[in-house]
């Protein structure tokens, strides 16, 4: 490299420069790339491999072929988890319109609005563990705020997390709280950059309210919507902390999702079933892969576009 700083040495500079330019990116990439390959990329393939074995995490692995996957097909708990994942995915998407709604509500310039915006964003900064605890107490059947409110308006109390029919929705509601805050901040930033001239022009043409929102504002918010969509899908499929804290999968396993069920199978007190757990995680990964492919394809189009 020393020669490179003195381009007028006897070496042909063009040659060095071309090679320097070829070598340099790999030297910069090496540490990060190796780390990433070692800890993230390789384990994905290892998980695929482990899913064909029966393994308790300590002893020898025993090849069982497709047996883990065959067991999944008849596993009721797996089926429940899969349905719950679908519920999470669909309900979580509500965070996008809800976040947009709050962003529109807050997109004003009255005094103190900046503080309001940060306080509305607040739930996102708190760890999901604390959000889970906070909502567990909120739902508590004996003293929770929810039932205190319900009783004060004359309704009978409900035990959200104790009811197999309601528990998953109760957890999703807790998860929506920070997720809405995230979508809100994305849209607030997006609204900030909306072209005022277009709005004025549309206003002169008589557009207002929902029509204005749909035809003029939302198209300009497309990048924010894309990111909101990506983070919401990922968030929905990653849900683990809240379930673990709020119900630990119960009551009667009704709040399990794939990410939680996998953990339970692989590392629970009922014995380590690493192979079976890996098979569940492979299914979850394949579901995610569908979305990842879509995200990458969108990004690739953007890259080509510039």
């Amino acid at each position: 490299m020393a020669t490179a700083t003195h381009p007028d040495t006897s070496q042909p500079t063009g040659f060095i420069r071309r090679n320097r330019q070829k070598l340099a990116p790999w030297l910069f990439l090496a540490p990060g790339l190796l780390f990433f390959l070692f800890y993230v990329i390789a384990p994905i393939f290892q998980s695929f491999q482990i899913s064909f074995y029966q393994w308790d995490g300590l002893g020898a692995k025993e090849w069982v072929g497709m047996q883990n996957y065959q067991e999944l097909v008849t596993d009721r708990a797996f089926e429940v988890s899969l349905w719950n994942n679908l519920k999470w995915l669909l309900m979580y998407l509500l965070a996008i319109p809800a976040g947009l709604g709050i962003a529109l509500f807050l997109n004003q310039t009255v005094t103190g609005i900046r503080l309001y915006k940060s306080l509305f964003f607040f739930p996102f900064v708190i760890s999901q563990v604390v959000v889970g605890l906070v909502f567990t107490w909120f739902y508590d059947p004996t003293f929770g705020l929810l039932n205190t409110i319900l009783e004060s308006v004359g309704l009978s109390p409900i035990n959200v997390l104790g009811d197999p029919k309601l528990a998953t929705y109760g957890i999703i509601a807790a998860g929506l709280w920070p997720q809405i805050a995230y979508c809100m901040i994305l849209y607030l930033t997006g609204l900030n950059a909306v072209d005022p001239e277009q709005i004025e022009a549309a206003r002169l043409d008589g557009a207002k309210g929902l029509r204005m929102l749909w035809h003029v504002v939302l198209p300009q918010l497309a990048p924010a919507t894309f990111i909101a969509f990506v983070v919401t899908i990922i968030g929905a499929l990653r849900s683990f902390d809240l379930i673990s804290i709020m119900t630990n999968g119960g009551p009667f396993g009704s709040t399990r999702v794939l990410s939680f069920y996998m953990f339970e199978k692989a590392l629970s007190e009922y014995g380590f079933r690493m192979g079976y757990g890996a098979a569940i995680s492979v299914v979850l990964f394949l579901i995610m892969l569908f979305f990842i492919a879509y995200f990458l394809w969108s990004m690739w189009r953007q890259e080509k576009g510039r």
Binding site: R238, L284, I292
Partner: peptide, 17 residues
């Protein structure tokens, strides 16, 4: 894209390895 995709994978697929 490999970095981006790796960032999106569910943690559980990495857990056992």
């Amino acid at each position: 894209f490999m970095f981006v995709a790796g960032n999106f994978v569910p943690f559980q697929i990495l857990m056992v390895p």
